[in-house]
Write a protein that binds this DNA or RNA. Structure first.
Lengths: 158, 158
DNA sequence: TCGATTTAGATGCCACGGCATATACTGTAC
DNA sequence: GTACAGTATATGCCGTGGCATCTAAATCGA
C-alpha cells in the first residue's frame, strides 16, 4: 500500500509518506525512553551529542546541522545551559558568538543517554536490519541527505 | 560519514540520523512551497489528503495514521473546520464522535495542493530516484513502517 | 436496569519552533 | 575614524503539539 513503485521512477509520495511516518514513530519511541531514563528528549540528546563530537561549536553550527532556525537553536542552547549541561564561552575571535562546550554534568549525561539511545534504536530497527536490503536503504538516505545539505534545501528562515 | 555500515548489522544511529535529517529538510521544503502557493503547510495537506481518501474518518483515525496525539488532532481538525475545509457530521452510530468530510472548498484546495506537492516532491527526490537502489530503500522503509504501526510503537499519549 | 468501566473527543497549560525584529559586533569603503 | 552593509545571535509573538484532565456517551456486569 505504501510504496506502489511505478516502473520508471518509484513513488515519491509513498516513499516520503513512509519516511515521515517512520521518523515520527521512532522519534516518539526514543523520546519516551530517554525522558523516562534521563529526563531529556531526543532533540536535546542530539544537541548534546553534537557538542560532544564538536566541542567549541557555535549556535549556527547546530542550526545548520539540524536544519532548525537560529532563534530556536539559541533558545534550545539556553535551556541546556540553564540545566547546567552546556557552557557558553566567549569566542575570542568574534565577540558576537559563543563557543559551546559540554560541562562535566553534560558529558556524564550524554554518555549515559548514548547507551540508552543506541540500545533502544537497535531494538527498534532490529527487525529491519536482518533480511532486508538495509545497506542499500542506508546508502539512499545518506546520499539524499548529502544532496539536500549541499543545496541547503529546507533551511528555515529564523 | 553518515552511515558507516559495519558488516553485520549496519549502523542504526547513522541510519536514523540520516532519516531524521532528510525528513526535516524535505518537510521544510514542502512547507515553503505549499504555504507560498496555497496558504497551508504539509501537516494540513496530509490531514486533508487523508480525508479525501477516507471520507467519514474520525479524529482517532487521523491520530492513528499520523501518530499524533488525539488532543492535537482534535485541534488540528478544528482549525481546518474553521477555515471551511472540513465538516464535522454527527456520527449516527456513536454520538461521541463525528464523521469528518471535506467541503467543496476543501476538495478544491486539496486537489490543487496535491499537484504542487507531487511536483515539488518529484523535484526534491529526482536526484535520488535515478541511479540509486531506490526501490530497495522504499521497501525497507515500507516494511519498517508496517512493523512500527503493527506494534503501535511511538504513539503519543494524549 | 443501574452503577462501574471504558472510549471518543474537547480543553487547558506548558514547551518548543518559525518568523520577524532588535542588538551587538565585524569588515569595508571612503 | 566613520558611516554602512553584513553577520551572529538573542528576544517577542504566535501557532502547534504533548500531556493531563474533563465530559459525554457507549459498554459491561450483576
Amino acid at each position: 500500500m505504501a510504496s506502489k513503485s511505478r516502473c520508471d521512477v518509484g513513488d515519491p509520495a509513498g516513499f516520503f509518506a513512509d519516511l515521515v511516518r517512520c521518523e515520527t514513530r521512532l522519534y516518539n519511541a526514543l523520546n519516551d525512553r530517554l525522558r523516562d531514563r534521563h529526563g531529556i528528549v531526543t532533540s536535546q540528546f542530539e544537541f548534546l551529542s553534537f557538542l560532544r563530537e564538536h566541542p567549541g561549536a557555535r549556535v549556527a553550527d547546530l542550526a545548520t546541522e539540524f536544519a532548525v532556525g537560529i532563534g530556536a537553536t539559541s533558545k534550545g542552547v539556553d535551556r541546556l545551559a540553564k540545566q547546567g549541561w552546556v557552557l557558553r564561552q566567549p569566542n575570542p575571535s568574534d565577540r558576537r558568538s559563543s563557543l559551546l562546550t559540554l560541562t562535566e554534568d553534560g558529558m556524564r549525561l550524554v554518555e549515559a543517554a548514548r547507551n540508552t539511545y543506541t540500545e533502544r534504536l537497535a531494538e527498534l530497527l532490529d527487525a529491519i536490519l536482518v533480511g532486508s536490503p538495509f545497506a542499500a536503504a542506508a546508502q539512499v538516505l545518506s546520499q539524499l541527505r548529502a544532496t539536500l545539505e549541499r543545496d541547503q534545501i529546507g533551511m528555515p528562515a529564523g
